[in-house]
Amino acid sequence: MTEKEPEPEDEDLRRAVNLIGKEAGTAPRKRLSGGVIAGLLLGAVLVTFGALILFTADFGGDERQPFVQSLSEAENIACSEFIAVGEVVSTAPSDVADRIVVTFAVEVPLKPAASQATVKLDVLDPGLSDPQSDLRAGDRVLLEVPQREDFPPAVYRGSYLDSRVAEIERYLDEASDTECPPYFQEGGETVEMEENSNDGA
């Protein structure tokens, strides 16, 4: 079915709506208040669902593909470059904005099965998207670092850590024979937002 071409006034409307959106999007942020409660909920869901929001996308043509995909636990592990329990020794800003270098003392390596006692990881700062995932020196956490550099690591701590480790251990064998879907692999296609793409209205 062909959609009609946008009328000139639609373009005016689009311009106005985008201007409103731009202003709203950059409006001053308030500091944590009610958001703290939502953040706690978010943390709980992170644990409950072993949280990693996973996307796939198709840019190759007209064929419509699912772009939100639930990875299985095995795929989740297969798509992780590094999974271990340990202590955050220190964090420092990376050379790249929004990334941090985490010095991590490994206690229980899960993937790979063997690891140096201390590793340095340059990752997207998980605290940016979720205050509960903020990493600080002295934190004992389970860290799941995805292959893709533009996805933040998943962070588990406290009472949720052990249950998540048990879950991962249950799927480790299966994960060794599981392929990470291409989109989630390192070097997978980076999503570009289509500015003003217009398929008609």
């Binding site: 790249v96 904005a97 340059d122 997207l124 670092v145 893709r148 533009d150 980076t190």
Partner: peptide
């Protein structure tokens, strides 16, 4: 052993960690 990750920014859509994406959602 995890390699030292590159410093090249591979920014894309993730769990609303991208500032542009956050602004878009707020809009």
């Amino acid at each position: 052993m995890p390699r030292q990750r590159s410093t090249k920014a591979q920014r894309g859509a993730s769990l609303l960690t991208d500032q542009q994406e956050v602004e878009r959602v707020r809009a």
